[in-house]
Design a protein around this nucleic acid. Structure first.
Length: 258
DNA sequence: AGTACCACCTGACGGC
DNA sequence: TGCCGTCAGGTGGTAC
């Protein structure tokens, strides 16, 4: 799941559960998840500190530690967080577990292990190295318009380009395009000013609505409920179609989107 | 610059 | 029941 709205929900979950508790131990079950730093160093740097706040940039979640370091988490396609106390509540694919002194645990769970966990003391440098564009949800219309003016190619590819703007993935790109009634393969330079405006508004609305709904139980008119070739468009009743756009599965309504 | 394809990973599902 | 191909919400490298 983890695109911008999902990670924002993780952030809020983190904020409401795992802050201000002394970390007794960090358990790394899967060393391949830890990138850019030796695992031993990762563990010793974090042990004895506590998370004081969190942040997010696109699909990256940050946990600020009391020693000034920052844990960076990326969730790939299957990552999530779980805070729990009883051992039998531990998720099936816990790769990194923060054990708190109060007996609670925070697990970074990630079945497919696409994604990563790392540590930095310079977040700006990290964001630069990763070539992340501005947060898709903290972008003015003018910035959005100016960014798109530099792009050629398909609009869905532009949405998914994390260096252009950070946070939109496959699902929510499809969603925004569906609600804007714009075909995912439309060439960016061919979009009218009005269409750019609509795309911006729908993108913001899709992100906001997804977060409000905790990324579950979306409104009926959301395409996300109909990602199936046998499904019918909730707007026009036509058949939802599946195509490939930049090698990613793309669902859309041929009647509504042009 | 844009796009297609492969690789990294594990697991679920449908067909035989 | 088991084997096999396919697919899955992400990203990075490479080749055209």
């Amino acid at each position: 799941m983890p695109e911008l709205p999902d990670v924002e929900v993780f952030k809020r979950y983190f904020d409401s559960t795992a802050l201000h508790q002394k970390i007794a131990k960090v358990e790394v079950r899967e060393e391949r998840m830890i990138k850019n730093i030796p695992v031993d160093e990762f563990k010793t740097e974090i042990k004895g500190t506590e998370f004081v706040s969190t942040g997010r940039h696109g699909k990256h979640l940050f946990g600020y530690l009391s020693n000034g370091k920052i844990v960076i988490m990326h969730f790939g396609m299957t990552g999530e967080l779980k805070y729990y106390t009883e051992p039998d509540e531990e998720p099936d694919h816990a790769r990194v577990i923060y054990h708190f002194e109060n007996g609670y645990h925070l697990a970074y769970d990630n079945m497919r292990m696409l994604g990563k966990v790392t540590l930095t003391d310079d977040l700006d440098a990290y964001i630069q190295e990763e070539e992340l564009g501005p947060n898709a949800d903290r972008l003015s219309f003018e910035e959005f318009r100016d960014l798109l003016s530099t792009k050629r190619g398909m609009i869905k590819s532009a949405f998914m380009d994390q260096s252009l703007m950070a946070g939109m993935g496959n699902i929510y790109s499809d969603e925004a395009l569906y609600q804007a009634e714009i075909h995912p393969k439309r060439q960016v330079p061919d979009l009218s000013d009005q269409e750019i405006r609509i795309l911006y508004d729908t993108m913001q609305d899709v992100i906001e609505t997804a977060v409000e709904h905790q990324v579950t139980d979306f409104p009926d008119h959301f395409l996300i409920n109909y990602r199936d070739e046998d499904a019918q468009c909730p707007n026009c009743g036509g058949q939802i179609r599946k195509i490939k756009v930049s090698s990613r599965s793309t669902y859309y309504c041929p009647e509504c989107q042009s």
